[in-house]
Design a binder for these strands. Structure first.
Lengths: 205, 205
DNA sequence: CAGACCCTTGACCGGATGGTCAAGGGCGGT
DNA sequence: ACCGCCCTTGACCATCCGGTCAAGGGTCTG
């Protein structure tokens, strides 16, 4: 069976991190299913048993990568907002920091987008996305209550923002990892703030 | 080998459509890789050879599903815009019709989102997305030239819209296929129009 | 130096998978 | 009635995959 909560030495922790790093890259490059456990251990340069010493299954490894990625992005965003009071500025900083994290973790984002399409992993992804939407909806609700933003469903606005940031990150920033992501991030901020501030029935003729 | 351009009778065409329909559903429900060719032919109720009579490989079948889906959505959107002159109204109709198509083709959209994460299929998806972005960018460029919309990169705006519509469709509409998608679509239109009309540096304090 | 425990090896297993093929059924045209 | 081609069958193949395990090497502690 598995490995659940083994006592690891410093060397063991390091090996574990190494497997996670290599697997994340391979899964993102070749796909989760086409990448075998043998591919991973070969890339690391160890025997097959090593994998099952640290992880109970291939599926558990992906699940851990996904969970760690989602919590890391959330923490990154929270840190970026810490100390800021104004809810609209919180929104902007949240969008920026979120996109920066996604830009820096292309492989993890690819795996998250894959996992969202596979029913075995989708529930975990949906849960993380709901949390992200709630995080964004809180300042939105405050801004609406304060009259700074027109009346609207905060959850719908929050999910719209997630859609813009994820898609621009996946299609434009990840397409050319060496380019400067700043102009794309600026455009995302502008688009989202505009979308938030859109009047309830403003379709100009 | 494969099947390439076989001469099909009416009965053959029907069988072919049936395999595509069943495979689309199974691939979306269980995932492309976890679904075997045997699963597909069993669900159809035929022998395995039938599959390879109509398709050269499992991969070719998915490629065809993806290509057909992308062109169908594009045609649906073009039809919805036909005869409309005003570029802003074109945008709104494009957003609405696009989301309606996605809402009605949940399985195909799941496969498209999956394919975007697998390097073997991603190029085709990227090409279709570029076409979709170009389609949306054309009226945007016109509206900007006419001064109806503030100066901005039409391609970035177009991709932002794609991000909003795809994500809201995947997370909210597909989550409950029986619910009425209209409120979500209305919110998407409002958000996107607001994002398009956002002033170049409007982040209110 | 001895024991204990963390770590590693790599052959092995049962089962599944994509794809092939020789053979045969049946429909449409003549 | 007969022929030819579209369609179907399902056993078969080579290969690969996730996961197991008995055995042994290293390292730290006492």
């Amino acid at each position: 069976m598995g490995s659940e909560d083994r006592q690891l030495t410093a060397r063991g922790e390091e090996r574990r991190r190494q497997i996670i790093a290599v697997a994340t890259r391979l899964f993102a490059e070749r796909g989760y299913h086409p990448t075998s456990v043998a591919d991973v251990v070969d890339a690391v340069g160890v025997g097959k048993g090593v994998f099952y010493w640290y992880f109970p299954s291939k599926e558990a490894l992906l699940t851990e990568i996904l969970r760690a990625g989602q919590t890391a992005r959330r923490r990154h965003q929270r840190d970026a907002i810490a100390g800021v009071d104004d809810p609209v500025e919180q929104m902007e900083r949240g969008i920026r920091s979120g996109m920066e994290w996604m830009a820096a973790h292309r492989d993890v984002m690819t795996l998250i987008r894959f996992a969202a399409t596979e029913e075995r992993f989708a529930p975990g992804i949906r849960k993380g996305e709901a949390t992200a939407a709630d995080d964004a909806a809180a300042p939105l609700a405050r801004a609406i209550a304060e009259g700074r933003v027109p009346e609207a469903d905060p959850d719908l606005l929050a999910r719209s923002i997630v859609g813009v940031t994820q898609h621009l990150s996946a299609t434009l920033i990840h397409a050319d990892p060496d380019a400067d992501p700043t102009p794309v991030i600026d455009a995302a901020v502008r688009f989202c703030i505009g979308g938030i501030l859109a009047a309830p029935a403003t379709i100009p003729r």
